[in-house]
Nucleic acid binder design. Structure first.
Length: 922
RNA sequence: ACACCCGUAGCUCAGCUGGUUAGAGCGUCGCCUUGACAUGGCGAAGGUCGGUGGUUCGAGUCCACUCGGGUGUACCA
């Protein structure tokens, strides 16, 4: 084996082996366990969030596979309507073409072509992460099977009255020329203005002042509204004003919607271009005047002067013209929420169109019940509140999109405006006994989330009642981020309940969002993104800088990003390897909502890999080609205390890991393994094995017992670690398993370690804790007194209990070797000790005679500090015990424990004070 | 405005149903190339757990209020 761990040289090799051998597919036996991957966007590439999420799923899947479950991890990608269409349109634009030049069919062919060539980036990257989904069953939300499922769902919902077509205001994206759902609109505060206009009353008796943030919409005003109880305006209700610039006479109406306190208490009403005004307009039967075209330029419904103007140009013009007429009262600075499309970034317009909607009310009811009664459980629980809040106030879902890439809506129209929904034109003609009147299919496609909502059952072959569907649906858990609870989770629950009559998954594990080490969201514009692949393979500073600043238009932004990157990563990124990256993810997967990714952590876990690697080297050096007494029926070996202890701790560790995984606490699971491997197996057990293996004291039986334990504990630990670090565990396991007499082609297929409670040895644990404490006490003195680690020193023991005596005898050799002692000698209780530095383990005094070794001042300082600490704590405890209420009300066991502690600590203080006095007397 | 989350060592975070002297990693300071590992070993320093009040024998942990940071939802033209 290499002296240091080299991730790059093992990872691809093992991945290929696993995939080639079909290890990722369900075994076909055992309790079913399934996870459906949240399908990543086909245009996407792996970001830190994906890395985190996929690592979690992979750990779960590998764990269950090793537990012998019939495990399916369903993989696939999402066709991502708008995103994909934009990518291909951008490519066309480079050749000076638009999709319209190509036409619908040719364009869609082009998208498919693009998907075949470039759509595989993210799945390749998933492999780099060591993800083990069943690639043979990979799906795409636009593949044939999915096409049928989506069609079927649409048709059935339509027939059941849960899908309808309606002419309403939608969120219109004037750049992408499509409607989008309210979830795809991001409203953020922006600086704007509030214009105050005077509207003249038609009877010439004066003016009303209205305020608006969007002056251009006044061209579409059809009323002015006031509050019915507002005394200022009561007498005006029923009168009309003459709309300036337009000349239209519009009514003054009264409606509770108007807040008399806000602004002037008069509101201009533009029902065709504002959601609130629309509703008010419905109540008062106001006409809708649509003044915008699909580009959000003004149409022919406005006076000629404004026709064809862009909405923002029109805004300027309207303001200027009103000003000229003396109707502009004032302009205030005003901060307002501006709605923008999450894809295009342009301001969204409420616009009147025909769209398809899902009637969500009845579906939501069921979906709420499923979570209320526990058929679906959110982890952590509090996300259920978010889910309920949205579900209980759900709006109908606009599912049509004016795109070319996506599932075309299976609806046809005849020339009389009749709508027919069905699988094909042929079917529709047949079913409706239509003559050969012309039919044309709806031009629109469905919201991508509509097809994603069918993911858990669509991927398993629905609408066919497949065997897989029976076995693997519902899936066990959905692993996802809270940002798509509404977009996806909720909709998936609604549609799956409706069509499958069962939940899509039993649990939803909601993980946090990966941010940078300062808690900032990673984004390209901030230039703080980390590419998981770069953390695996490493990247030079220059390349990192150019990657982060690529395509940056603003030079000042570019400069800032470059500066920040050079400061944060002066050496670029080292090649940490997949296992280290994954382990970092797990260590950060606590219950919080934000996961701040600090490169310092991954470096620590790369070192951890190296530690494992070198521990394995040590074990192999001492076991390969030797008798490890591992064969079946082998009895020719003997175990010592250290062996019982490490095996015992391994059982306890397995139990905590298992418990943590069950609670999705990957941070706790990873920490338990980390501590076991580093702080117990490496720091102590390997050291404890050396005196046995290298010394002359132990006989061959003991040596065999030690080798057996070294190799078996390592082998078991590798299996425990495998779901988290698939590569390094496989690489080492291949060499270790045969020595431990464990057969199998891959650690992936080996059994996950189970805690054997019978092997938990409380006495061995206590004995080793004692041994560690004594060694630590000596090391502490050595460290503080600057005694060179190599120098062997004599130790005197005094005032020990029977246990102390037994332990010191039984572990004599280990104490000598690990604490580097020259000798151990017991003093009689009354025997006068030579001047020494002192350590305490319980009541046992550990004395290192000074004899030229000890720095008097240092020892005084050390003792004083120690006494101070003990006294402070003693005081607290005595105070507690002096409180009659504590003694009376606290459980007796607690009181008793406290008493005992006070007793031993008081003695300890006395001892140390005596020591201090004698040192000071020197 | 409402809801939720977070606030623990210089930094990034644990601390499960309240009960040892509040832990880890990174960083810092000593010492050490001891035959698995300097991507290492040994030792040490570092925290009035955001604040106030309450419940309790006992609060980092439960409750109320408050300050600071964040997210989501609803928004008034």
């Amino acid at each position: 084996m290499e002296k240091t761990y080299q991730p790059a040289s093992i990872e691809s090799h093992w991945y290929d082996t696993w995939e080639r051998n079909g290890y990722f597919a369900p075994s076909g036996s055992g309790t079913p366990y399934s996870i459906m991957i949240p399908p990543p966007n086909v245009t996407g590439s792996l970001h830190m969030g994906h890395g985190f999420q996929e690592s979690i799923m992979d750990a779960l899947v590998r764990y269950h596979r090793m537990k012998g479950h019939n495990t399916l991890w369903q993989v696939g990608t999402d066709h991502a309507g708008i995103a994909t269409q934009m990518v291909v349109e951008r490519q066309l634009a480079e050749d000076g073409m638009s999709r319209h030049d190509l036409g619908r069919e040719a364009f869609v062919d082009k998208v498919w072509e693009w998907k075949e060539h470039s759509g595989g980036t993210i799945t390749r990257q998933l492999r780099r992460l060591g993800a083990s989904p069943d690639w043979s069953r990979e799906r795409f939300t636009m593949d044939d099977g999915f096409y049928h499922a989506v069609q079927e769902v649409f048709i059935r919902l339509y027939r059941d009255g849960l899908i309808y077509r309606g002419n309403r205001l939608v969120n219109w994206d004037p750049k992408l020329h499509t409607a989008i759902s309210d979830l795809e609109v991001i409203s953020e505060e922006e600086a704007g203005k509030m214009w105050h206009f005077r509207y003249p009353l038609s009877d010439g008796s004066g003016t009303l002042t209205v305020a608006t943030t969007r002056p251009e919409t006044m061209l579409g005003d059809t009323a002015v509204a006031v509050n019915p109880d507002d005394p200022r305006y009561q007498q005006l209700v029923g009168k009309t004003i003459t709309l300036p610039l337009v000349g239209r006479e519009i009514p003054i109406i009264a409606d509770d919607y108007v807040d008399p306190q806000f602004g002037t208490g008069c509101v201009k009403i533009t029902p065709a271009h504002d959601f609130n005004d629309y509703e008010l307009g419905q109540r008062h039967q106001l006409p809708l005047i649509n003044i915008l075209d699909r580009d959000a330029a003004l149409n022919d419904a406005v006076p000629e002067a404004y026709r064809g103007m862009d909405r923002f140009a029109a805004r300027q013009a309207v303001v200027a013209d009103l000003d000229r007429l003396g109707l502009l009262e004032k302009v205030d600075e005003h901060v307002l929420k501006v709605p923008r499309g999450d894809r295009s970034g342009v301001v969204i317009e409420p616009w009147l169109t025909n769209q398809w909607y899902v009637k969500t009310g009845p579906l939501a009811e069921e979906a709420i019940a499923a979570v209320e009664d526990g058929r679906i459980e959110f982890v952590p629980r509090q996300w259920e509140n978010t889910y309920f809040a949205w579900m209980r106030d759900i709006q109908d879902w606009c599912i049509s999109r004016q795109l070319w890439w996506g599932h075309r809506i299976p609806a046809w129209y005849d020339d009389q405006g009749n709508i027919y929904v069905g699988r094909s034109e042929e079917e529709i003609r047949h079913q409706n006994q239509l003559d050969d009147r012309p039919l044309c299919q709806d031009e629109d496609v469905l919201d991508t989330w509509f097809s994603s909502a069918l993911w858990t059952f669509g991927t398993l072959g629905w609408p066919q009642q497949t065997e897989l569907l029976k076995i693997f649906h519902p899936s066990n858990v959905l692993v996802t981020g809270f940002d798509i609870i509404f977009f996806w989770v909720a909709r998936m629950i609604m549609l799956t309940l409706y069509f499958m009559k069962e939940v899509p998954f039993h649990q939803v594990y909601v993980h946090g969002l990966v941010r940078d080490s300062h808690g900032q969201k990673m984004s390209k514009s901030k230039g703080n993104v980390l590419d998981p692949i770069d953390l695996i393979d490493g990247i030079g500073l220059e390349e990192l800088v150019s990657k982060r600043t690529a395509g940056m238009m603003q030079p000042q932004l570019r400069e800032r990003i470059e500066k920040m990157t050079r400061a944060d990563f002066p050496q670029g990124l080292a090649a940490y390897g997949t296992d280290a990256l994954r382990f970092t993810y797990y260590s950060l997967a606590s219950t919080g909502r934000d996961i701040n990714f600090d490169v310092g952590r991954i470096e620590g876990y790369r070192n951890f890999c190296n530690k494992i690697w070198n521990a394995a080297r040590y074990v192999l050096m001492n076991t390969e080609g030797m008798d490890c007494a591992c064969g079946a029926g082998q009895r020719d070996y003997r175990l010592g205390l250290a062996e019982h202890w490490i095996v015992s701790r391994l059982q306890e560790t397995s139990a905590s890991v298992e418990k943590a995984i069950g609670q999705y606490r990957f941070d706790l699971a990873s920490q338990a393994i980390y501590e076991f491997i580093w702080n117990e197996y490496c720091d102590w057990y390997l050291e404890l094995s050396k005196p046995v293996l290298y010394g002359d004291e132990a006989d061959q039986e003991r040596k065999r017992g030690t080798r057996r334990t070294l190799i078996q504990v390592l082998e078991t630990t590798l299996r425990l670690l495998h779901p988290f670090m698939p590569f390094i565990t496989e690489e080492i396991w291949q060499r270790v398993a045969p020595l431990a007499d464990r057969a199998g082609d891959s650690i992936m297929l080996a059994e996950f370690p189970q805690c054997d409670a019978q092997l938990i040895d409380v006495r061995a644990n206590a004995d080793i804790e004692w041994l560690k404490a004594v060694i630590l006490a000596v090391r502490n003195i050595r460290g503080e007194m600057n005694i060179p680690p190599g120098r062997e020193i004599p130790v005197l023991l005094k005032n020990g209990s029977e246990d102390d005596q037994r332990r010191s005898v039984q572990n004599h050799e280990l104490l000598i070797r690990l604490a580097k002692l020259a000798s151990i000698e017991w003093l009689e209780p009354r025997q006068l000790a030579p001047d020494s530095a002192t350590g305490l383990v319980g009541n046992l005094e550990i004395l290192v005679p000074i004899a030229g070794l000890i720095d008097k001042t240092a020892e005084i300082a050390r003792l004083t500090r120690e006494i101070g600490k003990l006294n402070q704590d003693l005081e607290r405890k005595r105070g507690k015990l002096a409180n009659p209420a504590f003694v009376a009300k606290a459980p007796p066991a607690v009181v008793d424990k406290e008493r005992k502690k006070v007793e031993t600590q008081a003695q300890a203080v006395t001892r140390l004070e005596q020591q201090l006095a004698s040192i000071q007397a020197l």
